[in-house]
Each structure stands twice: as structure tokens, then as C-alpha cells.
């Protein structure tokens, strides 16, 4: 019974983190983007500097009518948002916030994050195809092409970290971390950050949802709560990528007083990467489809392979 209670408690913690952290990132994006564009951003909801804007947005989304188009493939259309959400929820469950503070301690957790992240992409494709809308279909095609391309450098970069630590477990990787990884694994971290952003279809890699040409890509036909779930999945994706990168490249909970405030360090480092992901969105224009593929195959894949060679050399020389 106690183990059952523990499982429930751990799941609840993951769920709360899953609901709170994306909102935090979303609010940061609102305010950061506003100030980077010389605006103030939301100022009213909740009183102090519009802190409850996203809560208000969520309430608004739940009130909207849930429309399923007549031409849509209805069961697939209804199921698609759930896949994206579930995949990031499962990914968040294995991220360590301390040496023993993991919701689900599995040994291949890095592989797990990459594997369940792949399920979410199927959700995007399902949404794009089942909407019965040509904009959504083109968006789905573009996201499929993009996700397949960027999966390669993402996995190669993750493999480099796993090689350096000699383990697939995020906890072991964070344990194996030393400050000189900052230099040694820098190309891998850059590849992971860029490919992760592209996997999330965040600007500047938002060709699949390019609003000026495809309305909203695979999400064109979605309304209300289902649309909100896609948005939540996107921000949860930022949280997962940032936290994983914080654990892989910045050593997770490692830092001053890490016995007392280890989880704080993970969150702070994750927040650092989340801000960089947001910052990239605000600064750079969208990549065209051919440029997108070019960056993946001619830029990131060679860089990731170089990183693997570098890591292998480092591992062989030091052990």
C-alpha cells in the first residue's frame, strides 16, 4: 500500500510540475518578448504585472466551443492532442532534480526522453492529416520532414553525452559531469539546443506552423481545449528540452550548497536554456524549408559527428 501511495504521490508531483512549469515559461515568454520589442506585455490579469495571464487564457480556452470539422477523421482528430501532451508528461517523469529526486528512476532515462518525445511527433502528424484541411496537411508534411531530419542530430548529440558519462541514465550523466564538459561538450550542447528547438517547431524553425502561409499548420482546425493542449505541449516541450540540457550539459543539481538546494539549481539551469530558446524566437527570422533542411544535414549532423569523435577521443584518452 505504501508503494502504491508513493507512486500516486510521485505522479502527482510530475503532474503539478507539468502544469506549472510550462505556464512559467509561457509567462516568461510573454514578458520577455514584450520587453524585447519595447512593449510591456500583459499587465492586468492577476494584478501584479499580469502574472495570471496564462491562467486566464486557459479559462478562456475551456469556454470555447470544441469544433470537429465535418471533413475530419473524427477519432484521430480527437486523439491527436492527447499524444503530444502524454509524450512530454512521460518525458518529464524521468528528469532528475537531485541525486535521488526522480519521479521515475529508470536506467535508460536519456533514451526514454528521446523515445517518448518521438510519440509526440506522431500526434502532430495525426493532427495534420486528420483535419481534412490542406493547410493542415501541408503543415503536417513539413513537420514530418523537419522532425525526421532533426531527430538525427538530436540523437547524435545525446549519444555524445551518454558516451562521455558512460551511461544512458540522466542521474549518472549528471554525476559524471565535471566543469570541463562546458568546453568539451560545447558543440554537442549547441546541436542539442538547436535540434531540440527544431523538434518543438519553435521559431525560427516554425515552418510547419508558418502562420503567414499555413494559418496555423497542423493545428489550423483545432479550437478550445484541444488547441490549448497543443500549446501546453509546446511549452512543456521547452521545459523538457531545457531541463534535459541542464542535466546533460550543466551538471543538473551540481552547484554551491547542492545538498540543500539541488532542485533549485536544476530549475535555474533549465530556466537559463528556456530563456535562450525564447530569445532565439524573438531575435531570428523564420528559416525557409530548404534552409531548414540545410541547417540540419549540412550544419548540425557534421557538428554532432565531430562532437562524437571528440567525445570518443576524450573518453579513450582519459580512461
Amino acid at each position: 500500500m505504501s508503494t502504491f501511495g508513493e507512486v500516486v504521490l510521485r505522479s502527482l508531483c510530475v503532474l503539478i510540475a507539468f502544469l506549472v512549469l510550462p505556464l512559467l515559461v509561457g509567462q516568461t515568454e510573454h514578458k520577455l518578448m514584450a520587453h524585447m520589442q519595447g512593449r510591456l506585455g500583459p499587465m492586468y490579469a492577476g494584478g501584479f504585472h499580469g502574472w495570471a495571464q496564462l491562467v486566464a487564457d486557459g479559462v478562456k480556452f475551456t469556454q470555447k466551443e470544441d469544433i470537429v470539422p465535418l471533413a475530419a477523421d473524427k477519432p484521430v482528430f480527437r486523439l491527436a492532442p492527447a499524444l503530444g501532451i502524454v509524450s512530454y508528461l512521460l518525458a518529464l517523469a524521468v528528469i532528475p532534480f537531485g541525486p535521488h529526486l526522480v519521479a521515475a528512476g529508470i536506467t535508460g532515462s536519456l533514451l526514454w526522453v528521446l523515445a517518448v518525445g518521438a510519440i509526440g511527433t506522431v500526434g502532430t502528424l495525426m493532427a495534420g492529416w486528420s483535419s481534412g484541411n490542406k493547410y493542415a496537411l501541408i503543415g503536417g508534411l513539413r513537420s514530418a520532414a523537419q522532425l525526421v531530419s532533426y531527430e538525427v542530430p538530436l540523437i547524435l548529440a545525446a549519444a555524445s553525452f551518454a558516451m562521455a558519462a558512460g551511461s544512458f541514465s540522466l542521474v549518472s550523466i549528471a554525476h559524471a559531469w565535471t566543469p570541463w564538459w562546458l568546453l568539451w561538450q560545447l558543440p554537442g550542447a549547441i546541436v542539442f539546443l538547436v535540434a531540440g528547438t527544431a523538434e518543438l517547431q519553435r521559431p525560427p524553425f516554425d515552418m510547419p506552423v508558418a502562420d503567414s502561409e499555413l494559418v496555423m499548420g497542423p493545428w489550423t482546425e483545432y479550437t478550445g481545449l484541444r488547441f490549448a493542449l497543443f500549446l501546453l505541449a509546446e511549452y512543456a516541450g521547452i521545459v523538457v528540452v531545457s531541463l534535459v540540457l541542464a542535466v546533460l550539459y550543466l551538471g543538473g543539481w551540481t552547484g554551491p550548497f547542492d545538498h540543500q538546494i539541488g532542485p533549485f539549481w536544476v530549475l535555474l539551469k533549465g530556466f537559463f536554456f528556456a530563456v535562450i530558446i525564447l530569445w532565439m524566437r524573438m531575435s531570428w527570422p523564420r528559416l525557409r524549408e530548404d534552409q531548414l533542411q540545410r541547417v540540419a544535414w549540412l550544419g548540425l549532423v557534421p557538428l554532432a559527428l565531430l562532437q562524437i569523435v571528440l567525445t570518443a577521443a576524450g573518453v579513450v584518452l582519459t580512461t
Partner: peptide
């Protein structure tokens, strides 16, 4: 060019917003 873009947005963030409240 990428770094310049990020620098531009960072500089805009440090300045006061133009919003009319």
C-alpha cells in the same frame, strides 16, 4: 548575423518600453 540579432533584442529589453498605459 545571428549574434547581432540577439544583441539587438537584448538592447531593446534594457530600454524603457514605449507602451502607453
Amino acid at each position: 548575423g545571428l549574434l547581432k540579432g540577439m544583441g539587438t533584442t537584448a538592447r531593446a529589453m534594457t530600454r524603457h518600453a514605449h507602451t502607453q498605459e
